[in-house]
Design a protein around this nucleic acid. Structure first.
Lengths: 233, 233
DNA sequence: ACCAGGCCGTATCATCGCTAACAGCAATTT
DNA sequence: AAATTGCTGTTAGCGATGATACGGCCTGGT
């Protein structure tokens, strides 16, 4: 095995199982079976090593995504891309943090590639006449929102993560840059059950009526939250 | 000057002018005119020191925001809050990165306070009948998108930053959780408990959700009728 | 066979976060 | 008033880290 590949593999493994997302060049050398200066001769710098690890780990993800994407429904591809982005962040938290956290002096090439891939999908969406924003700024918009969601999820302990956050933001941001779905029913309902339940719940929270016992009130608000959450608009 | 305040001030100054966003406890001690162990006696830990610096720097921002917010237009407050969030990130990049980057073991209290502040604004928005999502998940959505935009801006070199990115994402995300502006669409919006309960009852009667048992549904409609009848408008 | 150049390993430096041990000082207790 | 206790600051140093200088070894060309 090449020394360079061994170091990359060792660094990737150590990074994956690192609690604080950091690794030491000494540990990498020991695991790869090489001495510390070899790393510096091959990569020059610890930041460059980490950037190489990120690029390496992201390459597989990019390859898989590149191979699977070409559907004839670019909007569905866009949605799939969002979900894949979030899943990659949750699967490789430390790599993802290195990508979208400006700790490195030399930003890894992976973020640029990811943005270009998203831009390509958006170009196809635009060609299908579904985009209301120019593809370039649209890519920035989607990437900012998607990475924000991913980092927000990573920042919360695993138990407190809202499993619907990514889909929620996705279903807000993507329609915000797309033309209305032609398959959707164009009859705009002025008020939905969810909306009415949300409003009533907020009003009751700020002005609690005295005619309810605590248990009744708890049950009522629970039902309102259920209606606000699990109802189609 | 108190030793603790001197250390906090020195750390804040060093952090502000730090190229990589990191500081050394030795440099902090030297600048504050105290020896290194004093820092550890007062803060216990470098992470705790940084968390205190973040909380200190964020406190002024929170105070200014708390004093200025109470307008009678909560939607405008929400928009102002978004812009203020982005501006704070650009004005204090290193502090902001410490807040929304999971490098610290003990997450600073500032992020929690910021989320609570946003949640409060959204509660007022909901009380005005303008929110289509429960305030709690809505706060997560807005915060994830806003921090994503801010970090995306910080990750690009200053010259390449799109000055309109924040406003663009804002004008996509906020309408995505709000009802249409009543100035543009004069559709009736429930404002009182009675109105909201009446609306919800009517909607439920016409589109009964399957997730309620008959007894539950009967009790819920009874309560809604009670709220619609015996509540002051 | 000899020489030259690149690669590797040892040893080391400077800096970092952090801590133990001791010294001054004030308030409280005897 | 003297002594004890508790808090605060200083000195000195430990272990780990990123990074580097230098000498020896192996390889390839003549």
């Amino acid at each position: 095995m090449d020394n360079r590949s061994a170091i990359l593999a060792a660094a990737a493994e150590l990074l994956e199982s690192s609690p604080n997302g950091d690794i030491s060049t000494r540990a990498v050398g020991e695991r790869a079976g090489v001495q510390q200066p070899v790393i510096y001769r091959l990569f020059g710098d610890k930041d460059s090593l980490l950037a190489a690890v990120v690029d390496h780990g992201f390459a597989e993800y990019l390859a898989a995504k590149r191979a699977a994407v070409p559907t004839d429904d670019p909007v569905a591809d866009l949605k799939r891309g969002w979900d894949g982005h979030t899943r990659f962040a949750l699967d490789h938290p430390n790599v993802y943090r290195l990508m979208y956290t400006p700790r490195l002096t030399s930003p890894p090439q992976a973020v640029r590639e990811a943005l270009e891939l998203l831009h390509g999908v958006l170009e196809r969406v635009a060609r299908a006449g579904r985009l209301t924003v120019e593809p370039r700024p649209a890519a920035d918009i989607v990437m900012a929102a998607n990475s924000g969601v991913a980092l927000a999820l990573l920042n919360r302990p695993e138990a407190e993560r809202d499993p619907d956050l990514s889909a929620r933001v996705r279903d807000i941001v993507l329609p915000g840059i797309l033309t209305p779905d032609p398959d959707a029913d164009p009859a705009a309902v002025p008020l939905s059950v969810a909306q009415a339940a949300t409003t009533l719940g907020a009003l009751l929270r700020s002005d609690r009526p005295g005619s309810f016992s605590p248990a009744e009130f708890a049950l009522l608000t629970e039902w309102l939250t259920h209606l606000a959450t699990h109802t189609n608009p």
